[in-house]
Every structure is written in structure tokens, then in C-alpha cells.
Nucleic acid binder design. Structure first.
Lengths: 119, 119
DNA sequence: GATACGGGTTTGTCTCGACAAACCTCATGG
DNA sequence: CCATGAGGTTTGTCGAGACAAACCCGTATC
């Protein structure tokens, strides 16, 4: 995954795409019209821009994402971790715990994840 | 903490401030000149903008941050968690583990943090 | 062969953040 | 007094992202 920098509008658009894909481009334009208030060219411009970035493809008037929601989440998490916590997950959690307590079931879930990661 | 949206240049600047504060405004201008290549007005404009946002104060030509590095980190972490993981720390960790394995000492550190959080 | 519609692109406007040239004011010292 | 430097502000340029008006092309329907 190369350098990936998504802007706000791009994220909003991708959320819509992920919820519906694969979807026809004109259908997408209609949905964006309704939910984001975008005119047709705005949607098509967005499609082309993201296609140029290889984040989706538009073939035979059908749009499909080439990146998954999970991929993007991971990528953004990594970025935050690198930028703010030198890439350290414990540092992230530590900073986090100073601002908010976790609920018992969250703690349990974390423990289980860590046990699994140890194997 | 109200709505907080920091731009890239603002973060870069704050990193410098945190490393040196409290510091005289002209000194800051000199450092930004060296490290960021900024001219004097750029630095002063930044100071004023962040002062307007109550993120720092400039009194008697001495600049002091009103927000700590940790506060900003926590705030950004929260934002990412809310936006991408419905605020769930376990969901964050789970997504993260799919992309990268943690080192043994990181796992140990996490365990200790969780134990402390349980008390 | 006019009209309509699906599937687009070209080009331009608007806003906003990043940055800086030129200017201002006051204190100090030669 | 006049220069110099500290400590600023006003104003404007530049670039980029968000968005859209107007246009284009093929097909198919009347």
C-alpha cells in the first residue's frame, strides 16, 4: 500500500460505496445527490480521482472498491500510531487510559485478544 | 475540550513549541525559520491563530502552550476511535492485529496496563 | 431524424489554509 | 536625532480541494 492520504470528502464517498458496492456509477451519482447533495459531475470526478489512486475501479459503468474498509482503518491507525506514539501500541493504550476508563467487558475482550496474539 | 481540528502546519508548530516552552516569541520565530523554513510573519500568524483557539498564550513576548502533547494525543486517538471503530478500543486492537504482530515485550506491556486498569 | 437518457469529461469558480512582503511601534544606545 | 532591533500586524499571493455548469458521445425509441 503506497502513500495514502484521504481527504474528508473522499472518506465520506467511500463509506457510501462500501455500503452498496458493486454499484452502477449513475446509481452512485443518485445516492450522492441524496445523501451528500452532490451534483452528477462531482460524483464522477470523485470516481475518477479515486480510480487514479487505484482505490476503486469503474468498469462497464460499475464501480467497485479496490480497498476494503478494514484496510483503510488499519492504514489510518498505523498512521496515527506512527505520528503520535512512535508506533507503539502500549503507548497508545497508556495515553488513552489516562483519559477514559474501560468497561469490564472491554478489558476482558482486550485480554482475550492479547492471549490469542501470544500464540 | 471543544471541537478541535488541527491542521498539519499547526501540529508541526506545536511539536516545536512543546519541545521548548516557555519560549520567547522571537526565539520561536528563529527556530521555525531554521527547522521549518518559515519567515517571521508566518510564525507570528501561527502564534496568533493558535492563541485565538486558546491552544497557547503569548504574554510579555513569551509563548506557553495551553494544551499538552498528551491532551492532543488523547483527543486525536478518541477521534480516530470514534470515527473508525465506534469508540471501541478492542475493535481498534483487533483491526490492528490483523495487519501487524506485536513483539513479546509489547504484549507484556499491554498485559500490565490492563491489569492496572482493572484495579 | 428529433428527443431522451445513460455515462461520462472539461473547465471554471469558490473557499481556505500556508506563507510572506511591507509596514508599524516602541525602547535603547551611539 | 537617527539607527537598530525586538515584537509584532495588515494584506495579498498561491495552491489545492470541493463542487458544478455546460458540454460531449453513443444508443434506442418514437
Amino acid at each position: 500500500m503506497d502513500k495514502l492520504e484521504l481527504f474528508d470528502a473522499e472518506k465520506r464517498f467511500l463509506e457510501i460505496l462500501w455500503a452498496r458496492e458493486p454499484v452502477k456509477s449513475t446509481e452512485l451519482a443518485r445516492i450522492c445527490q441524496e445523501t451528500l447533495g452532490w451534483k452528477k459531475p462531482t460524483t464522477f470526478n470523485m470516481i475518477r480521482k479515486l480510480a487514479d489512486k487505484h482505490l476503486l475501479k469503474n468498469e462497464n459503468a460499475t464501480v467497485t472498491a479496490l480497498i476494503s474498509r478494514g484496510d483503510l482503518q488499519r492504514q489510518e491507525s498505523e498512521a496515527l500510531l506512527q505520528q503520535s506514539f512512535q508506533g507503539s501500541v502500549p503507548a497508545f493504550l497508556a495515553a488513552f487510559l489516562e483519559g477514559r476508563r474501560l468497561k469490564p467487558d472491554e478489558l476482558e475482550a482486550l485480554k482475550r485478544l492479547i492471549e490469542e496474539a501470544e500464540s
